[in-house]
Amino acid sequence: MIWLVFILLGISSLLFTQQTDVLTMLMIESAKDTAMLSAHLLVLMMFWLGFMKIAEAGDLIQLLTRLMKRPLMWLFSSVDQNSQAFSYIASNICFNMLGLGNAATPFGLKAMQLLKGNNQAMTTLVILNTSGLALYPTNLIALRLAFDSREASVIILPVLITSFITTVSAIILLRVTFNARHKWVKQ
């Protein structure tokens, strides 16, 4: 639905401003961008899921999962306690907090596959990723330095406060949404 609205708005504006010939150009460009992005993502996924398999067989992932079990079980209460998904979720969240979003994505995707069918858990994981709780915004500070910022790291604390507030309110919103639906179904 949203997708159709986007296309409709875009197309009507192109028609309105009589730029009908750019459509093909945009198609080619978006295919190019997608290919680039996918190639990048595929490389990351292949290597990190590969290493993850080895780490799993070596009982390393289980260690990490045990450390994060309590908060995870609270957030993902609908997931079976012994589910493999927990190890992928734990890795995803760890990498995200370190500001290494690229390394986090493969684990998130794998977790989604294992959570398939459990809508609440899938949505929770996605929301945790979109609200972007990072302890150290690596890329942002690099960008500020690139533009000759005198105090590139002053933004760490406000970013941390803001993303904390965002994450907490996202979790609350999510709980409210799912609880409301639950009650509605019961009635």
Partner: peptide
Amino acid sequence: LMKQLFPRLLALIFSVKLLLYSDV
């Protein structure tokens, strides 16, 4: 994973590109 992902990504990127190009 990538096989399932690619078509959706293309659809999304195309719509956003179209929207950004237009002056909405």
